[in-house]
Write a protein that binds this DNA or RNA. Structure first.
Length: 201
DNA sequence: GAGTAGATCCTCT
DNA sequence: GAGGATCTACTCA
């Protein structure tokens, strides 16, 4: 299992990177507790020309500043006041591209995730959906800007690949406010996987 | 099972 | 001062 190199994130084609991230493994190791999961759903946010992106029109604020950094770091922010959402920054420095991780299939540390989620009802799908996923993996806004080359939070490749016919794309979720850009097929997911958010198809 | 209200707070206008 | 890259739980059927 190998950590993805900076060169992987710093390529310019975010849609290609997003597709290639499907099937990769997201790993965190906080305080000796390792949790990991295979990425099965994500969305691309293509910087200044994408109305759904925080950086649309070249906006640069204290919150999204990290999107302008060189690829290979995490962009984590708070949404709706209570959910932490995890993004991977891509492209070279100065171009605010990011990929939102929306769903993973747990591999290691399932019990730790359950504990972190503190669910009333037992729910196996605690890593389905961006908010829950961040909670289960122990990710929060304090980790904004974290390098994915570190040893406690990174994405790895174990050689596994989902068959091409399982990979699908669709419009993104929850971005209706973005007008025509809400229709762009920038969401990539694994067809039929239980850890993909939204209605099963 | 489907539809919806409420939570909750940071960020930008 | 408004609204958001969400989720849960409650209602009604």
């Amino acid at each position: 299992m190998e950590k993805l190199p900076l060169s992987f994130y710093q390529r310019k084609n975010i849609l290609l990177i997003a597709k290639e991230l499907l099937g990769k493994i997201l790993v965190t190791r906080w305080e000796g507790l390792e949790t990991s999961g295979r990425i099965v759903e994500l969305e691309a946010y293509r910087g200044v020309s994408d109305r759904a992106s925080h950086a649309y029109g070249g906006r640069q604020t204290a919150r999204n500043e990290i999107m302008y950094a060189a690829g290979g770091v995490a962009y984590i922010y708070l949404c709706y006041g209570l959910h932490h959402l995890v993004n991977v920054v891509t492209h070279e420095a100065g171009t605010p591209h990011a990929i939102l991780i929306r769903g993973i299939a747990p591999l290691e540390g399932m019990q730790i995730m359950q504990q972190r989620a503190k669910r009333k009802k037992t729910d196996p799908a605690i890593t389905r959906g961006p908010g829950k996923l961040a909670l289960a993996m122990g990710l929060h806004t304090g980790l904004n800007g974290w390098s994915l080359q570190s040893n406690d939070f990174f994405i790895a490749d174990d050689g596994f690949q989902y068959p091409k016919e399982w990979q699908a794309s669709s419009p993104r979720i929850g971005v209706d406010y973005a007008g025509d850009d809400a229709l762009l097929p920038y969401r990539f997911y694994i067809r039929g996987n239980a850890f993909v958010s939204g209605k099963p198809k």
